[in-house]
Design a protein around this nucleic acid. Structure first.
Lengths: 314, 314
DNA sequence: GGCGATCGTGCTCAGATGAGCAGCCGGCCG
DNA sequence: CGGCCGGCTGCTCATCTGAGCACGATCGCC
């Protein structure tokens, strides 16, 4: 296309999209036939001169979702639009809302849903509507008797999801990480704990997030790990954690000894799940999101546009 | 429209604009009739959820142009899009290009075109194509024997416009501002200068820009005014200059004594013109652009989207 | 100079879309 | 309880649009 056609296609696009003229009218105005106008508009689109954005907190990016499914082998992907996002909180809220929407629309409805805990999961529980399901039982899949200042967030998450879904929650009464291996093994052999873990293994679906490997981690905030602990993990190649277990960029456990002291579903158990929904968004979680997808820790990913594009192109 | 319809309209918009599905297909997917889908899409548009942008350096904003014509009483308005602009230089280039385009398309072609000088005018002269007109004579409308480091820019502007338009340029051989009133009157009574000004008065069309009243002014750069001079003008209410004459926000001369020492067309002579094309863009020129339009110094305005919106909304 | 390939153009026709309209349902008042 | 009104729905029909095709001009090649 020469320059004159390029200019004409811009003029045509202005009249078509901004002035709502018909292609025929544009043809008269620019002294072209309507077919020529149609071709110019098609070219303008195809050459990327026309950008159409959907500005809405609930807007999704279906083409990116398709690419994630096709190119990264996911069973499903939900990508929220970042158009018009002004704060990290809003991004988080949009992603959580999308995850809640996905859960609500999920068919068949899972009888038992395994959940982790954390900021993201808590927000999802808040975005779920009362009656989002009828009779969904929720089970915690990793330890989390919280030591932090907002005790009970982990429990509130599971209970909230269950209660709004017309079911009940089964909590895993154990710390996330124990200081000694013996204690961890003792706790796991406890009848109640063992029962919960057994229930978690049998869940129809899992819903979890991932944490970045930095000082803002919930594990640091909760006191399970110290700042130097995290630094050490990063040195060993950790990019983040999934259900409390730190992985490197290939999805492998970074520190087997630490992992052995971590209570809950193992990553391999998670990988065997039919339906594992990971909800990961935000610029700090690019690396861990990539690791989760690459190592097939999830079958479904809920994320934001920027993260999704990073997974595809970066 | 309730929330459920709002969400549906977003889903429909995603399928329509991002997936290129027909309204009928969307209807099947969302279990709606195609008419409902059509109405949802119309609502999404009307409520502003759909943003269509034309990304091109030559793109214009026709709806804003119309508003400028209607609400600000301009005979014509050219508004260049700022979408994708990364630098002030690019904005300047786009505006200059638009002005050049406007001149080229102008009918009837002016026999004599009065021009001012400055950065903007020089750039317009560069963006004009060889042969943009056949036989357009150019006359300078204000003094400008340049004292600055790039001597001859003013002359080069007029000559360039004339030469590319197949005509000749008539220069106004006088400084822009003289130190003494007597000198100014003497110069204006010079036969050659008087003849040029007479020719300028008889021009069919005028093309000029406006300067902001700050230290970056061409008058400071050229040595006609000192920094304290400008500060004083600003104190007196100056928002900028048009053809070398400083005006306040109502378009009135700020300093009559200074004005009397300024050589060239007066503002009232400019206001009587049938066709006066002002080219004003950039964030620093909001106030002077408003003054020019408010005081009817121009009949046609070439500007950028941001400036135009400022003129319209405050 | 003749020939075929290629491109751009404007047609036919079918599918997609929007305007206008009648019917239906729920709410409200007499 | 019945009738009226307003809003929503899904229809008909006219218009708009895109795909496919045939024609003619232009260009390069023989």
């Amino acid at each position: 296309m020469d320059e004159i056609d390029e200019l004409l296609s811009i003029r045509a696009a202005e009249l078509y999209y901004e002035e709502n003229k018909t292609q025929d009218e544009i043809g008269q105005a620019l002294r072209l036939t309507r077919w020529k106008v149609g071709r110019l508009l098609a070219q303008a689109k195809q050459r990327g001169f026309i950008r159409i954005e959907i500005l809405h907190p609930r807007a999704r990016r279906l083409p990116i979702e398709r690419r994630l499914r096709d190119e990264r082998g996911l069973a499903d992907a939900i990508v929220v639009s970042t158009a018009g996002v002004t704060s990290p909180e809003e991004l988080q809220a949009r992603t959580a809302q999308a995850a809640a929407d996905y859960l609500t629309a999920l068919r068949p409805v899972p009888r038992t849903l395994g959940v982790s805990w954390g900021r993201t999961l808590f927000e999802i529980s808040q975005h779920l509507r009362q009656g989002w399901a009828t009779g969904v039982n929720v089970v915690q899949i990793n330890g989390g008797v919280s030591l932090n200042r907002r005790p009970g967030t982990a429990a509130a998450t599971a209970v909230g999801i269950a209660q709004k879904g017309g079911g009940s929650a089964t909590l895993l009464p154990s710390p996330a990480i124990l200081e000694r291996l013996e204690t961890k093994e003792a706790i796991e052999s406890d009848r109640v704990v063992a029962g919960v873990i057994e229930l978690a293994r049998s869940a129809d679906a899992y819903l979890f997030s991932a944490g970045a490997a930095d000082h803002s981690s919930v594990h640091v905030e909760s006191g399970y790990l110290s700042v130097p602990d995290v630094d050490l993990l990063v040195q060993k190649g950790a990019v983040g954690d999934v259900v409390g277990r730190y992985i490197d960029s290939d999805g492998n456990i970074v520190d087997p000894a630490l992992d052995a002291r971590t209570v809950g579903l193992t990553l391999d158990e998670l990988r065997r799940a039919q339906l594992a929904i990971a909800v990961i968004s935000g610029p700090g979680k690019l690396a861990v999101a990539d690791a989760v997808v690459r190592s097939r820790l999830c079958t479904v990913l809920v994320t934001d546009e920027a993260t999704a594009l990073h997974l595809l192109d970066g």
